[in-house]
């Protein structure tokens, strides 16, 4: 009876999207393996949501805010109590920080940023993008438990119709050599490209830093995040956290709008798994058109503002 344990994170009393997605694929693996789905969180508020996505139990610790060392110890305790065979963590900053630490402590295998998972022949198989998405590796994890971090937006979040998870308190040492002194929220509380369903990206075609306002206006109207090509980040037009592609983030939103992005190989690698790609570029030969589902050959300086207005109208209906 292999048990699947999912690391959950709570924000505003609700489970983060990454956690809901990890629970959803975790439930499928538990069904395939004939085992149970359980969850871990540092907040009891997760019990309703965790249950709604299929978790039978929620292991809760009083560790407070995220801290690598205290969470490693608490997760280790939950893994032991649950006798977990599979451990999944949504691919947030914290999930990616914690997974390798756990794997090293338990001398087991871990796969990062996976976009497919299956339980086959008593082992966990995962597919993960390598070379920023220029290739995909299928890996098999041996060692118990098998650990994986799931790529955000790769697994749909699906409720199971279950009731609240049974809360099981676990105590773990709160010793740590690190202290989080302060958390500074980015200006304007901008949506992160990693979590966004829609990304509007700007490239060198914007000509100068100030013109990123066109991209920001469209992103705001449509409810998406602002992305950027490496060239614009290197030119200092926008902060690195917006960079899509190799040496930036690999993203797979539902809708990706690229304006004035020519489509260097490093950029294409980072966004080509997006579900619907729209490109606006004045050069009909730009490589971005090779992967765009809808390509618009034209001037971004007139099309993007028109699109922003059109989106506002559509939203008003």
């Amino acid at each position: 009876m292999p048990t699947v344990l999912v690391f959950c994170e709570v924000q505003d009393n609700k489970l983060k999207k990454a956690s809901r997605e990890a629970l959803s694929i975790g439930r499928k693996l538990a069904e395939a393996a004939g085992g149970d789905l359980v969850a871990f969180a540092a907040d009891r508020a997760a019990a309703d949501d965790a249950g709604r996505y299929g978790a039978k139990k929620l292991y809760v610790t009083n560790a407070g805010g995220y801290n690598t060392e205290t969470y490693t110890t608490a997760m280790q305790a939950a893994m032991e109590q649950a006798s977990a065979s599979i451990v999944l963590l949504g691919g947030t900053s914290n999930g990616r920080d914690l997974a390798p630490r756990l794997a090293a402590r338990l001398n087991t295998g871990v796969a990062s940023d996976v976009d497919r998972l299956e339980w086959t022949g008593g082992k966990l198989r995962a597919r993960r993008p390598v070379y920023s998405g220029k290739a995909f590796a299928t890996v098999e994890i041996s060692g118990t438990p098998a650990i994986a971090t799931t790529r955000i937006n790769a697994f749909p979040a699906e409720e199971s119709g279950g009731g609240a998870a049974e809360v099981v308190e676990i105590s773990a040492s709160l010793d740590s050599k690190t202290t989080v002194v302060e958390t500074k929220v980015s200006e304007g509380g901008e949506l992160s490209i990693v979590e966004a369903d829609i990304i509007v990206s700007g490239g060198r075609g914007l000509k100068e830093a100030a013109n990123f306002s066109l991209i920001r206006d469209l992103a705001q109207a449509i409810g998406g995040a602002v992305g950027a090509s490496r060239a614009t980040v290197d030119a200092g037009w926008i902060d690195h956290q917006h960079q899509v592609g190799q040496t930036g983030r690999v993203v797979s939103p539902n809708v990706y709008i690229a304006a004035g992005v020519s489509g260097a190989i490093q950029h294409l690698a980072g966004m080509s798994s997006s579900k619907h790609i729209i490109a606006i570029n004045k050069d009909p030969e730009a490589p971005i058109f090779r992967i765009a589902d809808l390509g618009v050959v034209g001037d971004l300086f007139t099309i993007v503002p028109a699109l922003t207005e059109e989106v506002k109208k559509a939203k008003a209906h």
Binding site: T92, N94, T178, E195
Partner: peptide, 9 residues
Amino acid sequence: IEGAEEIIE
């Protein structure tokens, strides 16, 4: 981290 920065000692 997502949308923020932690200052850690």
